[in-house]
Amino acid sequence: MSARSIFLALAVLPAAALAQGFAGLGTNADGFAIPQPDPQFVFPADHGPHPDFRIEWWYLTANLTGPDGTDYGLQWTLFRSALRAGTGDGWQSPQLWMGHAAVTTPDAHFVTERLARGGIGQAGVIADPFRAWIDDWQLSGASDWSDMTLSASGPSFAYDMTLTAEGPLVLNGADGYSVKSAEGLSSYYYSRPFLDISGTLTLLDRPVPVTGHAWIDREWSSQPLSQAQEGWDWFSLSFETGAHLMGYQMRQTGGSTYTTATWIEADGVATSYPDGAFDARPLDFTTIADRTVPTTWRVMLPERGVDVTVSALNEHAWMTTSIPYWEGPVSVSGSHSGKGYLEMTGYDGD
């Protein structure tokens, strides 16, 4: 087993870790802090890291359009994973960092990954002024996330983007306390769904100017998994009406699911929905890397009259990272139309 996969097995991607049969992590917090109900977030401090929690991420996805109308997807993620709670100087720091960056076009998917130790300056997050970085990749700007720049590079692609906030932060679950399973496993979880983004993608040395819409997720936790959970399917959808929908289902052994959703009005007013309100069913599958992955979905939130078909822009948006998963842009049609992002983890090889 390579050092990289060990890193991942330490559960930066909870469902992926589950998929590896590494379920123990999910139920035992080992001296780490545990999310409590009724959180009182303090900004900008909470944009920064929470080293007493086991895992944390800064997750940006964007739907982009080129000058010729071509659709693109962009992902930039910084994960933090702690071997032990707390901080330390230099190499003694128990904090580990991982970055994933990807660009999806209708017929190509570029992925790259970075790993770093905490404590030595190679990667980290500072809240004020905001700066999240690993190696030369960076998401940085004003402490209120109103204006930021974003960059990443890989062997065959790079991007350089500017972000402008158009709406408020949205707290998912109960004021940012998000329950993940019937047993009560939980995380702190908030989103920033209203961001304009523009800049340049470099694809195999070819520059492409793009504009579009971005979404940032922030989540941290110490025990987000239940032993019975196999993986998850996560949707962030932006409708042409200006409303947004975040919904996901945790797939449990035996075929049952645990679902959560947040409906966000165009003015930023958000409503959370408990288990069962949101429904997602696979319509069509694609075989990628010896796995069968659903790439067309029927997604429903009946209380908001949502009944849409969600289709992958590129069905082969497979993240060939240390622990692989599917993540890519989608288009939405049906009761509502729009664009969005889909992440699916825990799909084992056949």
Partner: peptide, 11 residues
Amino acid sequence: PLELSALAGFI
């Protein structure tokens, strides 16, 4: 062959 549990022990 650093096992899963060993990286934490190694670092």
